[in-house]
Amino acid sequence: MSDIAHDEHLHESTGIETRKLAMWIFLSSEFMFFGALISNYLLFKGRVGYPEPYPSEMFDIPFTSVSSFVLLMSSLTMVLADHAIHRDDQRATRTWIVATALLGMVFLSGQAFEFTEFVLHDPPMKISTNPAASAFFTLTGFHGMHVLIGVIMLLTLAGTSFRKGRLSTATGLNLESVALYWHFVDIIWIVIFTVVYLIK
C-alpha cells in the first residue's frame, strides 16, 4: 500500500523506515477513530429506558474470552513471522503469516457467530433495537472490518511470497508495517474487550 520516492541520497531523517513511520502515523489517527467509537458506546450504554435488550445483557463472556485469546495468539504468530523474516527464513515467514491470517479468520468467525446469536435471540438485539445496540454493533463491526483488512493484507503478502519466492522489499506492502497494524488492531480489541465486555 505504500511506496517511496526513493533515492539513495535521501536519508531518512528520523532513522525510522518511512513505511513503518507512516504506519505509526496512520495508527495514531486510528486511535482517535476507535476512541470516538468507544466513547460513543459508553455514552449510550448507561442510558435507561431503552427497549430491551441492552448489549451488556447479551454478552457471553467465556465465548468472547476464547476468541479474544485467539486474536492475542495471532499477535504472537505475527511476531514470529517478523522474526523469521529478519533471519531471512522465507519458509517460516510464510508459515507464520498464514497462521496469523488463519487466527484472524477464526476470530472473525467468532464475531460473526456472536452477532448471529444476538440477532436471533428472543427478543432480538439488532442494530436498530436501541442506541446502545447501535453503538455496540458499530464499534465491534468496525473492529471486525479492521481485522478483515489485516487478513487481506496478510494473505496478499503470503501470495507474493509464493509468487516470487521471496518477500520483496521493493513492493509497497511490507511485513513490518502490516505487523504494526496487526498489533494495533489486537490492542484495540483488548481495550474493547475490557471496556465494553468486562466492565459493567
Binding site: M1, S2, H6, T156, T160, S168, A170, T171, G172, L173
Partner: peptide, 9 residues
Amino acid sequence: MIGWSLEPI
C-alpha cells in the same frame, strides 16, 4: 490496492 502493492516503486 493489491495490484498497486505488488507494483514495484
